[in-house]
């Protein structure tokens, strides 16, 4: 296994799929000559040329719609959002058209499209640039959403997304791009879409998280073990839709307590759905109410130290677990 960055893992996935299937192409702002605003596509234009890696004007509605149209003819467009916050200017294409092609045609059409890019707060770029729309997009039947937290998952999920015959939204994070981790070397390393991953085994409480919150939860888990001998299990959803109900339920049935953590806003957030699922299928196993931690329910603030407070971090998670287990900090 090689140790590579999250950024490199995505780049490798893109390169391998470009190599493997000539119908795959990458399109987005600054993805080619500039090597990507966050350097995720670095070197790909040089290697694959103008046809496969395409710089687009700042016309998201235009090129996402183009991606949908091209996918109908069997191409496999991978559209980069410089930030996922910019998908909103293309909302009709991204959610309305993309979600309904297969259904409205009675299954006559495939829409093998990937829209990928960073969707995170925490970088002081203000309310318009800090959206995490995984819950919004997962609200549309017909669309799939994955949120990898580690380099291995980023690579495996990206490759699966590109091979999927429906629109898949891959939400990355600018904060994670530089993180390193082990990634299997084999060319056919795929992570199935819709499979959660127990990132840490434990018996006292289940933390269920996605995206960067997984890493903050793991940090909290280490501290809880070291300082309080508490064994927390951390379940990484990886995929928002489809959602791996079984892994979630199994974990909660084992630990009897659930804390849900996400950087998304609370109202109709992903964890609202997860919470419903747990009470529906594991109510009798719960030793206490399900707790949720999410971003403070307001637009993303710019002020750097205050934005830090806005997002749940390891300290806040640790405190919440202690409170749930009624352990004095």
């Amino acid at each position: 296994m090689a140790i590579i960055t999250y950024r490199q893992a995505i780049k490798d996935a893109l390169a391998e799929e470009l190599e493997r299937d000539e119908n795959v192409f990458i399109m987005g702002e600054e993805v080619a000559e500039y090597n990507g605003a966050y350097k995720v596509t670095e070197g790909l234009w040089k290697r694959f040329g103008d046809k496969r890696v395409v710089d687009a004007p700042i016309s998201e509605a235009g090129f996402i719609g183009l991606g949908i149209g091209a996918s109908l003819l069997g191409l496999r467009p991978v559209i980069e959002m410089m930030f996922f916050s910019f998908v909103y200017v293309a909302w009709d294409q991204a959610v309305n058209n993309a979600s309904s092609m297969r259904y409205m045609s009675g299954g006559l059409m495939n829409c093998p499209l990937v829209i990928r890019g960073p969707a995170n707060g925490g970088t002081n770029v203000g309310a318009t640039h800090s959206h995490t729309p995984e819950n919004l997009i997962a609200n549309f039947p017909g669309l799939k959403v994955v949120v990898p937290a580690t380099p291995a998952d980023a690579k495996g999920l990206m490759k699966s997304a590109i091979r999927d015959n429906d629109p898949v939204y891959v939400m990355e994070s600018t904060v994670l791009y530089g993180n390193e981790g082990e990634v299997p070397d084999e060319e056919e390393f795929l992570v199935p879409i819709g499979k959660a991953d127990v990132k840490r085994e434990g018996s006292d409480l289940s933390i269920i998280a996605h995206g960067r919150s997984v890493l903050e939860s793991l940090k909290a888990a280490e501290k809880l073990k070291k300082d309080y001998n508490i064994d927390v299990e951390v379940v990484d959803l990886r995929s928002i839709r489809p959602l791996d109900e079984e892994t979630i339920i199994k974990s909660v049935k084992k630990t009897n307590r659930a804390l849900l953590v996400e950087e998304n806003k609370p109202f109709c957030g992903v964890d609202a759905q997860v919470s419903h699922l747990i009470q529906r299928r594991a109510f009798d196993y719960l030793d206490g109410p399900i707790h949720r931690l999410s971003a403070v329910d307001a637009p993303a603030i710019y002020s750097p130290p205050i934005e830090k407070i806005q997002l749940p971090d390891a300290d806040v998670i640790t405190r919440e677990v202690l409170e749930m287990l009624q352990v004095k900090a």
Binding site: N124, V125, A127
Partner: peptide, 24 residues
């Protein structure tokens, strides 16, 4: 401190921002 560099506003000077989304 809520808006940052891209989001200055001064309605009293008839200045309505400062907008981060291109074309928005």
């Amino acid at each position: 401190g809520k808006g940052g560099s891209m989001h200055f506003f001064a309605p009293d000077k008839r200045f309505w921002g400062g907008h981060g989304i291109v074309g928005g």
